[in-house]
Amino acid sequence: MVSVANDIAPLVPHLDHLMVGVTITLKAVFVITALGLVLGVMGAAARLSRFPVLQTSARIYAHIFRGLPEIVIVLASYFGASALITTLFPNSTFQLAPFWAGCIALALTFGAYATEILRAAYLAIPAGEVEAGKAFGMNRQTCFFRIIMPQSLRYALAGLSNLFLVFLKDTSLLSVIGVAELMRQTKIAINYTSLPFTFYLLAALCYLVLTGVTMLLLRTLEKHFTRGMDVSRGQHG
C-alpha cells in the first residue's frame, strides 16, 4: 500500500491539468454539436428542397466533408483561414483563435453527417401522417412543427447520439492546432513528469468515463423518446 501511495503522490499535482482539459474538451464538443446541428438542419432542408441547385450543393457538401480526414479539415481550417484572411485583408489584425477554427472545422463535418441522418429521419415519416394533418386543416408550417419534426427527431436520435460520441473523441484532434483540451493538457503533464504511459492512460480513462457516461445518458434519452417505436439502432461509431 505504501509503495502504491508513493507512486501516486507525485502524479496528484498534475491531475489538475487533466481536469482543465476535460472542461475544455466538453466545451468544444458542445460548441461543435450546436453549430453542427444548425448546419445539419440547413443541409437536410436544402437536400429536401424543391430547388436542384440547393439539392446538389447540399449533396456535394455532405460528400466532401464525410470523405476527408477530420485532422486535414482541422489543419486546413486553422492554417487556411489565417492565410485567406491575410491575403484578402492584408491590413487586418484579426486572427481566428485555434479553438474556434477547430470547432468550426469539426462542426462542418458534424453537419455533413447530420445532414444525412436528418434527411433519412424526415423521409422515414409515412406520407399518411402528413395527409392526416392536412385533412385536419393544418397548414404546411403547423404540419411541419407538430407532425414531422417531433417524429423525425425520434428517428434521428440514435444517429445523432452516435455522432455526439464520435465528435467527443474527435475533439482530441484540436490538440494538433494547440487548443488546450484534454490531449494537450496531458502532454503538458507529461513534460513535467516524463511519464507518458501513465498520463496517456489517464487521458484514455477520462475519455472512457466521458463516453461511458454520455452513452448511458443518451440511452436513457433514447428509451424515453422512442417508446412504442421500432427503431433499428445505428451501427457505426
Partner: peptide
C-alpha cells in the same frame, strides 16, 4: 471493444508510440 471504441484513436496512438518508452 469498449476501450478501443471509447477512446480517441489519437490517445491509442500516443499511448503506444510515446507511452511505451516509459518502460
Amino acid at each position: 471493444i469498449f476501450f478501443f471504441r471509447g477512446t480517441p484513436m489519437l490517445v491509442q496512438l500516443f499511448l503506444l508510440y510515446y507511452g511505451l518508452s516509459q518502460f
